[in-house]
Design a protein around this nucleic acid. Structure first.
Length: 728
DNA sequence: GTAGTCCATATG
DNA sequence: ATATGGACTACG
């Protein structure tokens, strides 16, 4: 009887494939192997072993590959995520198994050169230039030396052949230097120390045998500026003292030099950082360091969740309410929730931190599924900013202007004191609507039903839904009138224009996700602002995210009402979180801060809660409102939209969902004819499964989803916002 | 993911 | 009659 291996292949396949294990090859579950698939060879992972013959025409495993095997918990995570998100198992595996491509796999040995003292046989001008630089005897990279001497690389090679320089192989710089948990640090406040004790209490590796452990996830909730980071750093320190690894997950945008420096201030070295920008060899060396347990702390964006940790001891999810944790293409998952799952599977604690937790996290804490640790005050006795409303019905800006007189005055005096001001407007571009004064034509997206947003800098009209862009026309495309287009309403670019007119001598910077130069430049710009290299910051929501601006003392919210009117059932929650975060940026340095909030509806529950600082009440009311409406604070609605031919499969899927341990609140199976017509534009035939956390307006959601123009082929599956606790 | 199929349409 | 492209399926 031949031995059979079940090999999972990182392609969109639901089940592992069976292969014969050739004699002499000793395989174990988790091993990374090479197998033939059709005409080619492909990498796979041993998912199971058996001696049951699964047919006589199985092909043999080609061999084992020299990669660390996938641990049991990691394989369970793949199984779990596939089942939960209804993604093919192979797709889930692909997230774990991003192996190096051919180019990256070739380990080029880095070579440095050093002077030997032996004079060159044939001294030339170029050669002596190099020797003049190298005379200090230091090690230099070949190209660095050539560049410094201002000659070509071949001259260096010539000198090596000659014997005047010697080449020395250098160890690559360590990819994950060891953080020192006992590095001298600034002392914690009593409140922080108390929180550390509460946090670390119950961690399984802190308890002796027989002692009780409490491995529930912990919500670490602290107001902006309370020093949550320093608190969880102590949990990280405790973890690495135990010789275990810690993972800190952050929204990609928050992964800045500033954060890495803060880490270095506590642990002596910067942590290993994992994000979409880290590529090639460095990526693979870090992965290996993680798999071998060498990398003790990894700070990373959501994909870091799938790194093959050898001894994971702690997962921290920073800013757990951030929507950036949601992955919405390929396998759909919420990294915060998957972190909870991985923690459970690895038997390690999970800490979720936020100043404005997501409703579902709050509910989980209130129901006792999560522990709740609170930091109610700012660090160092600093006060929370005073927040006041500016009623726009009373304090109107001039026509065509958007800053009210009280806000302008506040900015002026802030700048006069040499402090920094932030003007927050959650709208990119110059103006959200463009119309022709002659004929009244409004510029609309071809694909979506949204207005095109003018971007004056790019001289374009852009759809913020699908990215469709057209040149801003000189003459109206409808009636042909020249030079008669009007920009309606403000975007950050327009506010920058207004600010430049008001404060001509000040340094003004606009920060939005479409920052010219891309994410890397944006990150640098954020650091520059934090260093005080600018007076007025005009920013969209990205300035609210995990960045400290120590010189910032005034935050002006230009239009607090944006977002309150959208049909999104989370509008209130999102707006509250955003405004709370952005106003909380003020006064975190030496000087106290304040926030001024321009609004037309100061009595709206969200605005009122923000002004009174009563988050507690806001959450309670929000949860209550959902209960009153007959909705669970987080429930699930599953919908399957199918092509006629797949109806049967979908029905079965739906029934399976309804039979799940904690079934969705409803399952809908729709055929293409029943789906909203706008949805099934063209000849799409697809199966779409949507699981929503709440009872969202499914049609609106789907319309938006299609409007984004996804490449829809057969077998599309979407699952968003599900509550993993119910499956654990 | 990729190679190969079928089928429809475009092209010479 | 033959190329080109999209949709779909098999791959153990």
């Amino acid at each position: 009887m031949p031995f059979i291996a079940e090999i999972l292949i990182p392609l969109a396949l639901d089940t592992p494939y069976s292969y014969v294990v050739p004699a002499g090859l000793d395989l174990a579950a988790g091993d990374v192997v090479q197998v033939p698939l059709g005409p080619r060879e492909i990498v796979g992972v041993v998912w199971g072993l058996g001696d049951t013959a699964g047919g006589s025409n199985l092909r043999p495993v080609t061999g084992r590959l020299p990669y660390p095997p996938l641990s049991d918990p990691l394989r369970s995570l793949v199984d779990w995520i596939a089942r939960y998100t209804l993604a093919p198992k192979g797709s889930a595996l692909a997230m774990v198994l991003r192996l190096p491509d051919e180019a990256a796999a070739v380990e080029t040995v880095r070579v440095a050169v050093r002077i030997t003292g032996k004079p060159p046989a044939r001294p030339t001008a170029a050669r002596s230039k190099i020797l003049a630089v190298a005379v200090d005897g230091a090690l230099r990279g070949k190209s660095a030396l050539a560049k410094e001497a201002g000659v070509s690389l071949s001259v260096v090679d010539g000198l090596i052949d000659d014997g005047a320089l010697e080449a020395v192989a250098v160890e690559p710089e360590p990819v994950a230097p060891r953080p020192d948990p006992d590095f001298p640090r600034t002392p914690l406040s009593p409140a922080q120390a108390e929180a550390v004790t509460a946090l670390v209490e119950g961690f399984p590796w802190r308890r002796g045998p027989g002692e009780e452990t409490d491995n529930r996830p912990v919500l670490l909730e602290g107001v902006t500026g309370s020093g949550k980071t320093e608190v969880y750093f102590e949990a990280v320190a405790a973890c690495i003292r135990e010789g275990r690894q810690a993972l800190i997950l952050m929204p990609e945008i928050a992964l800045t030099a500033q954060f890495l420096d803060r880490f270095a201030a506590r642990f002596g070295v910067r942590p290993a950082a994992w994000h979409s920008g880290i590529g090639g060899k460095r990526r693979e060396r870090l992965r290996l360091a993680v798999a071998e347990g060498e990398a003790l702390v990894v700070v990373g964006a959501r994909s870091a969740l799938f790194l093959p940790f050898a001894r994971l001891g702690l997962i921290v999810v920073d800013e757990e309410h951030e929507t950036a944790y949601k992955q919405e293409d390929g396998v759909h998952y919420h990294a915060r929730d998957m972190a909870v799952v991985r923690g459970r599977l690895e038997g390690c604690p999970v800490v979720l931190t936020s100043a404005t937790p997501a409703i579902e996290t709050r509910v989980n804490a209130a129901r006792g599924r999560y522990r709740h640790v609170l930091l109610p005050e700012r660090f160092g006795g600093r006060r929370l900013p005073d927040i006041a409303a500016i009623d726009m019905r009373l304090d109107q800006p001039e026509r065509g202007r958007f800053l009210s007189p009280p806000l302008v005055n506040a900015v002026k005096s802030t700048l006069e004191r040499g402090e920094q001001a932030l003007l927050f407007l959650n709208r990119r571009g110059y103006a959200p609507l463009t119309l022709c004064r002659a004929c009244g034509h409004r510029y609309q997206c071809k694909n979506c039903s949204t207005w095109l947003v003018e971007h004056r800098f790019r001289r374009a009209l852009v759809c913020h839904q699908c990215g469709y862009t057209e040149r801003r026309p000189e003459a109206c495309t409808e009636c042909g009138t020249f030079d008669n287009l009007t920009a309606c309403g403000p975007g950050v670019e327009r506010i920058a224009e207004e600010a430049a007119a008001l404060f001509p001598d000040r340094r003004i910077v606009v920060l939005s996700s479409d920052f010219p130069g891309g994410a890397e430049r944006l990150r640098q710009e954020l650091d520059a602002v934090a260093a005080g290299e600018c007076d007025v910051v005009i920013g969209t929501q990205l300035v609210a995210k995990g960045h400290n601006f120590p010189f910032l003392t005034l935050v002006g919210v230009l239009d607090a009402d944006i977002g309150l009117t959208s049909g999104d059932p989370r509008a209130a929650e999102r707006t509250f979180q955003l405004l709370q975060q952005v106003t909380g940026r003020a006064g975190r340095g030496e000087k106290p801060g304040r926030a001024l909030v321009q609004t037309y509806q100061p009595d709206h529950p969200v605005i009122a809660a923000l002004l009174s600082g009563d988050a507690e009440r806001f959450y309670a009311e929000e949860i209550q409102a959902r209960e009153a409406a007959g909705l669970p604070p987080f429930g699930r609605l599953a919908a399957l939209i199918v092509s006629a031919s797949e109806r049967e499969t979908a029905e079965a899927h739906g029934q399976a969902l309804a039979r799940a341990a904690d079934p969705p609140d409803g399952v809908m199976v729709l055929g293409p004819a029943e789906a909203p017509l706008a949805l099934v534009r063209g000849r799409y035939r697809f199966r779409l499964l949507v699981k929503t956390e709440r009872n969202v307006d499914l049609q609106a959601y789907l319309r938006a989803w299609i409007a984004r123009g996804p490449k829809v082929r057969g077998n599309v599956r979407v699952a968003i916002d599900v509550d993993p606790q119910s499956f654990l």
